[in-house]
Design a protein around this nucleic acid. Sequence first.
DNA 1: CACATTACGTGACCTAGATCACATAATGCA
DNA 2: TGCATTATGTGATCTAGGTCACGTAATGTG
Lengths: 192, 192
Amino acid sequence: MEAKEILRKHIAQTASLTDEQFDYFFSHFKPQSYKKGETLIRPGRAVECEYFVISGCLKAFFVNDEIKTYILQFAMPTWWTSDYGAMYNHTNATITVDCITNAEVLCLASHDREKLCSELHQLEHFFRWRTNRGYVASQKRLLSFMNNDTKARYEELLSLYPQLYNLVPKHLIAAYLGVSRETLSRLYNNHR
Amino acid sequence: MEAKEILRKHIAQTASLTDEQFDYFFSHFKPQSYKKGETLIRPGRAVECEYFVISGCLKAFFVNDEIKTYILQFAMPTWWTSDYGAMYNHTNATITVDCITNAEVLCLASHDREKLCSELHQLEHFFRWRTNRGYVASQKRLLSFMNNDTKARYEELLSLYPQLYNLVPKHLIAAYLGVSRETLSRLYNNHR
DNA sequence: CACATTACGTGACCTAGATCACATAATGCA
DNA sequence: TGCATTATGTGATCTAGGTCACGTAATGTG
């Protein structure tokens, strides 16, 4: 399935657009290909756009002063990603988005999204719901952080996204769970 | 300032409505008064509406099997609160919303919000941006959880909302930070 | 193919914060 | 005003997980 069709199906779950409307919407996206390890969003730079993932896997992460990495999101096909804090406030990025595998994405400029939202009510509706879901997921993860121990969070993550186990190196899973790679290693080898 | 005026100013920051449009919007809200300790949303029940706080302070929290409480949000004047996960998915509430102090709120039914959003593009715009901000704040809190220790999170919370220190009991602040009340107590009395 | 880099496992030790136990305010309310 | 809650402080002890140190795969690249 090609990029256009994937996006079409994705939108159709939340908003109904005519073919003409969708074509117009789609014409604002720039298809891009990235290789494993390439960086889409870099801290300190302006954030021009957000990305819709067609294939491959990206990660959005924060690196603190002690060079420790925390992964906010693994972005898989049909997921959206960006540094939304920076994008909405027009400030410089504080997080990085890069490729875990080779990836194809559709790039939508922030000002184009705002323009499209004001031109087409249905698109404003779509983006409202997309963010709703993100917000609820984020609250849920926060709760899981407070309530569950590492092992429970690890199992939760793998039951939600089984593909991750073979797709991404273990130290990145640790960085998503917010623990050291040593702890994660001990966890599933239960040496304790 | 009365409730209507407070909501008017709040909306105006994000969306421009005519007086007629705002009156129509406002006519869907039910003003309600609650006393300290009263419950607005209860786990296991359906979630009919969301609340806009006019005065007082609410809390939205989760209670786990071991009766430990985790506070997701303190809701102060001009904040919105509900169990959004339950509301969006039409499932029963998993969190509780109750009053830390006596409070006045405006209650908006979920189906009215959806109706209003589809009738008035500007309102859909407003709710998109409100959720945007919530999403970004939630991501930021998640990051703070992973990156900062309890002391840093405590200071972050108080610098953001200094009123909280005198308004809410310390064990609720601990429940927001995700630590035991003993740990919080030791923290600001630095007996260590 | 060889060498560099990255990924992963595991022991030893350390620390933040949990838990339990108890004491002492402070507050509400009959 | 007096008693029952609720809020808070603090010691003693325990534990999940961090950090450091080292080793061995695995993978990539000239």
